[in-house]
Amino acid sequence: MNKVPGYLDPLLILSTALMGCALYLIFIWVPTETNQGAIQRILYFHVPIAWGSMLGIFVVSASSILYLWKKDQKWDRLAVSSAEVGLTFGAMMLLSGMIWARPVWGVWWTGEAKLTTALILFFIYVAYLMFRSYFPPGTQRQRIAAVIGVIGALDAPIIYFAANLWSQAHPPLITGPAADADSTLGSELGIVLLMSTFAFTLLFVYMVQARYKIRRSEDDIVDLKRATTTPGVS
């Protein structure tokens, strides 16, 4: 049993500290970008979150492949944990992106390739988690879920390619967003972005391992229940 109180978890302390530094850099240190104004500060939040959700997809597909290969429970636990955390990051990525797009592009949503890809991938991983909750527990569920995890990752580049082709055929009404233009910030932008990405990556790792522990507890309960119903096995 874990005797250390949860708030002393070194990962939590470290990610909180880093997040504090990142927030200081985002809000106080970095100067306001002149073309977009204060709203540009969303970028320091949006990009690391998007990175986190991509990391989530990567971990899901990698651990799904490892599960199909090694048939080890821990890879399945890792896959479902990072899918759930990745989906949380994905929802935040879509929300922060939309709120940024409204004042800068003048629309909440447009058929741009990255946006379309992000949305469709979001749906694929929603389906992944829904599948896990619908399917009766057992190794078959884990195997099929792993297959879906791999297919989602395989589909990602095709979706991006298609969405790119598609958005070329349909030039959006609002083009040339200020975001594409040269930023008036040079190295400062890079520093803040790096710091923020680092903080969010740690937060991602913390959340995945917290979710992983829950998943393991759930498995423990199943084992314990089996032990209590069949006396003499424990």
Binding site: A38, R41, M92, L95, I99, A210
Partner: peptide, 29 residues
């Protein structure tokens, strides 16, 4: 000020989502 509103909206929604999720995990555990 309106742009600051958007900035605030992003921070509020994302943090609320985060905290809701972390709280949910703590509760479940």
């Amino acid at each position: 000020e309106t742009n600051l509103g958007y900035l605030f909206a992003v921070f509020a929604t994302t943090w609320i989502l985060f905290f809701a999720y972390v709280l949910y995990m703590g509760q479940k555990q």
